[in-house]
Amino acid sequence: MRLEKCWFCSSTIYPGHGIQFVRNDAKIFRFCRSKCHKNFKMKRNPRKVKWTKAYRRLHGKDMTQDSTFEFERKRNRPERYDRNITENTLKAIKKIDKVRVDREARHHAKRMKGKKAKEQREAAKELEQSIHMVKAPVALQQEPSLTLPKIKVKVSQQQAEENRMEE
């Protein structure tokens, strides 16, 4: 049983799934589902479509270089059946898969580091710049009770934001 990869999105195609197209120059294109087939027919480039693996790889969203990628490959050479080797391989598959998933999670965490702080910074900036949309500046001047008294207090970023939201 050979598990093929989709030409468009690079997902695994199990037997009995998807569709395959053989061009008149005998090139085979396999697709995991009609979504990928339709995108191919529309002549879309998988490198430019954001949900494909090819795009994610190219733009550093996924791991690109890893030693776990060396195990799964197309082997075009006959292998003599050996019960022990098969057993060991089946054991190794689970272990390698676990290692890869862990590494991928680490890669994702690394990539997402600092995102929350960045979002918060941007939100604070937007609030400062466009507070006039919520409350007219004249109204704030006329009624001093609306503005907070200017006292220098050491507060963390988040608390300062909450105060502004209340007014």
């Binding site: 990869k5 989709c6 690079s10 997902s11 890893d66 060396e70 195990f71 490959r73 075009n76």
Partner: peptide, 20 residues
Amino acid sequence: APHTQLDADLAAGMGMPDNG
């Protein structure tokens, strides 16, 4: 170069094909 099946395989986390 345009996208090929080999590119798709590599993106899926497969190694280069082993032809012996």
